[in-house]
Amino acid sequence: MRALAATTLLCLSLIGCASVPMADKQADAEAKKFATAQDMSRIYIYRNEYFGAAIKMPVVLDGNILGKTVAHSYLYTEVVPGPHVIAADGENTEMLKLTTKAGENVFIHQQVQMGFVSGRSGMKVVDAAEGKAGVLECEMIEPQY
């Protein structure tokens, strides 16, 4: 049964990509300047991999839907500095608690991992160099908030 689920998930990841509304090129280019207001923080959540391409992963920030990530996409938002909770749903619900600082960019790498029935979400905070490189490989999703 597990082998069948794994094979199905692999096939789905190779068949095609899920789609979500993408931001316009100008908004994408502006976000990739990584300029943050001195009194705010920016959070970037990106998926720069093809594995799980057919899977949309909903992302929630502090109880509000931010959007759904797909392969080679990213979401970003400006937040008030302080504690925040980011949740991503798949076969599991991955929760990440972090505290942002004014003027800071926070980069979160989201991965789709193989699950039993569907894809599982994994998230981790990465350093600025890795995060910027990952975001530059992706296209910005139109925020849903």
Rank of each mutant, 00 (worst) to 15 (best):
A3G: 08
A5N: 15
A6N: 05
T7P: 02
T7C: 13
T8K: 09
L10N: 11
L10R: 08
C11N: 12
C11E: 11
L12E: 15
L14R: 07
G16Y: 03
G16K: 07
A18Y: 02
A18T: 08
S19L: 04
V20Q: 02
V20E: 04
P21C: 11
K25T: 08
A27Q: 12
D28T: 13
A29K: 07
E30A: 14
E30W: 00
E30P: 01
E30M: 07
K32M: 07
K33H: 09
T36F: 00
S41W: 01
S41T: 11
R42D: 05
R42Y: 01
I43V: 14
Y46I: 04
Y46W: 06
N48Q: 08
N48S: 13
F51M: 14
F51Q: 13
F51Y: 15
G52S: 11
A54M: 07
I55V: 14
K56L: 12
P58G: 08
V59F: 06
V60F: 03
V60N: 11
G63F: 04
N64H: 14
N64R: 14
K68N: 09
K68M: 05
K68S: 11
T69M: 09
A71Q: 07
S73E: 08
L75P: 03
Y76Q: 10
T77F: 03
E78T: 10
V79W: 02
V79H: 03
G82V: 12
H84Y: 09
H84T: 12
V85R: 12
I86D: 04
A87N: 06
G90M: 04
G90C: 07
N92K: 01
N92M: 02
K97Y: 06
L98Q: 09
K101N: 12
G103I: 03
V106L: 10
V106S: 06
V106M: 09
V106P: 01
V106Q: 05
H109R: 15
H109D: 15
Q110I: 07
Q110C: 09
V112W: 05
M114L: 12
V117E: 11
V117Q: 13
S121Y: 03
M123G: 03
K124L: 13
A129Q: 14
E130I: 10
E130A: 15
G131L: 05
K132Q: 15
K132Y: 06
V135A: 06
L136W: 00
E139K: 12
I141W: 03
E142S: 13
E142W: 04
P143F: 02
Q144E: 11
Y145V: 02
